[in-house]
Each structure stands twice: as structure tokens, then as C-alpha cells.
Design a protein around this nucleic acid. Structure first.
Lengths: 151, 151
DNA sequence: TTACCTGCAAATGCTTTGCCTGGTC
DNA sequence: GACCAGGCAAAGCATTTGCAGGTAA
């Protein structure tokens, strides 16, 4: 999990100030690890846990932090963008398991894609710079709930 | 490539009529294989190649055809949904290579994901029903164009 | 007749932008 | 002072919906 200090450094590198609003938004992500928050959720949480703040500021800050590679923008096809902290130590991006029933998103790590990326470069000349892998299905919890339906 | 006859059958199974507008939209997809069309592009192409039609009808038809599994909805994070014909014979869905420079989308086939899906069920109880794999990078064509930039 | 379709315009929902004010370098 | 930020309201854009007028079964 990235620390505040590394976030400060990235803001400095980007010649951006650490304003109170920006700090509050970063704290929300640190306080909610493993969640994939939408702009509106971030806005609600900041106001709930700290103080009032403009929604446009939230959008601008999320954009800024994504550009600085502090956050990562993900799209789960639910009509809004979601964000999570980017884990710096990760050499391989993690992937997502999206439950079609309860909507919960789990994560998993998998290095399977590296040989494939090499092959894409060798065989088709396509240089991969980023990838995105999502599985949609039914999570263990929901499968226990409604066995008849999902088995 | 699916034929009109199989589309007719699916519409019948879904108790849906093959109206002129729906047929025109299906023909657009048959006339543009390998492309990933947005609602607006479909609308423009239908009006260009055939006749006028309402944009809302395009949206409703794309929704309908997706539900009948005639089309597949894909999101390339460019702010609009895109659609392509679903290839019935495919046991494994194909994946996409999105060029970050020219925006072109190539496809590729890969069965690598099956063992992974088995493991997700065994190890975490997550039953995968669908997946989505995208690589973002620079395509061979663009790499030839601007070697210095991308190498 | 009844249920289904289309077209248009209006509404929706997420996101971005313009403008003004106030703080920072 | 020049620039950067935040708040608010308005605008933007893709998509959805309500409704009136057809059309098919």
C-alpha cells in the first residue's frame, strides 16, 4: 500500500500543491483499501468523514491523481468510472473478479500475461504497454447463498 | 461470421419482429466486419448506406440485439459503447489489442484463460461466466511510422 | 383489438468547463 | 502580480424514456 510520503513526492514531481482538499481525497483512499470508489462515492465519503467539498473539485482531483499515477481509473461497465490506489510495488497489474449478482469486486494477481505479451510483439509487432483483465461471474459468497440458481 | 438466417432465428426465439430498421442495422454489421461500431456510427452508416432512421431506434435495437446475443457490447474507454457481431462458432471469446496512437483495434484468439478460470473456481470459489481481456499499446503500423518515439 | 415499434423531443446521469474569488509562490 | 485551486452553476455528451402515431398479428 503506498504511503502518504510517496504521494507527496509524486505531487511535487508533477509540480502540484498538496491542498487540503487533495489531501482529504487521498486519505479517503487510504482509509478504504481494496474498494473501487466512484467520484460520487469519494465526494460523499469526504463530506461524511471530514468536511464539505465541491463535486467538481473531486473530479478534478481524481483526474490529477490519475495523471500522476497515484490513482488508477477502472471501468466496470456500471456507468461510472471507478478509482483505486495504484500499488507501486506491483510489477504486474492485478486483475478483477466482478460478481454479477452482488456487484462486489475481488482482486487477483496473475503473471500469466507476460509470455503472451512477448508473443504479441514477436508475432504481430504489437508492443503492449498496459493490459486489463476482468472476469465476470458469481462470487463464492453468492454461490453459497443461492446454490440452486447458480449451479 | 454469422449469417442472416441465424439472426432471424434468434429474433424469433426472442419473440421479436424483424422490422426494416432492425434489418438495416444488422446489415451494417455484416457490411462492416471486424469494426467496432458505436451507436452514432451505426446511425450514420445506416443513413448513409440506406435511409433515415431515428437515433433512439438505433440505441433500442443495439440493446435488443445484445440481449439476444447477436451483438456484443464492448467498452474501449473512449466514452462510448461499441458493438460487434458475436461469432457463434467461437468457443473462446477473442480479445482486443487497442492501439494508443491510432485507435485501431485488432483482435486475437487465445485460450490461455481456461486453466485460470478453473483455478479461480477451485481456489476461490468464483465461477467465471464471462471475461474480458484488452491490451493497450502501439500497433505494428504505428511502430513503423515513428520508430524513434516508440522504441 | 392488442401488443409491439418507431420517431421525436425531453429527460437523465456522469463528467467537464467557464467564471469568479481567494490563496500561494 | 501571475498563477494555481476551489466552488458553483451551466454546459456537454452518450444514453434512456415518455408519448403519440403507426403497424403487424
Amino acid at each position: 500500500m503506498p504511503q502518504l510520503s510517496s504521494v507527496y513526492r509524486k505531487l511535487e514531481e508533477g509540480a502540484k500543491r498538496l491542498t487540503p482538499q487533495r489531501e482529504l481525497i487521498i486519505k479517503i483512499f487510504l482509509n478504504h483499501p481494496g474498494e473501487h470508489l466512484s467520484a460520487e462515492e469519494v465526494h460523499r465519503l469526504v463530506r461524511q468523514e471530514f468536511q464539505d467539498i465541491g463535486l467538481a473539485t473531486v473530479y478534478r482531483t481524481l483526474e490529477l491523481l490519475t495523471g500522476l499515477e497515484i490513482l488508477e481509473r477502472i471501468n466496470f461497465n456500471d456507468g461510472r468510472a471507478r478509482y483505486e490506489m495504484k500499488v507501486r510495488e506491483e510489477t504486474h497489474r492485478h486483475h478483477h473478479l466482478v460478481c454479477l449478482r452482488c456487484g462486489r469486486v475481488e482482486e487477483f494477481q496473475e503473471d500469466l500475461l507476460d509470455p503472451l505479451e512477448d508473443r504479441l510483439l514477436q508475432e504481430r509487432g504489437f508492443r503492449v504497454m498496459d493490459h486489463e483483465l476482468k472476469f465476470y461471474g458469481i462470487c463464492a459468497h453468492c454461490r453459497r447463498q443461492g446454490k440452486k440458481e447458480w449451479e
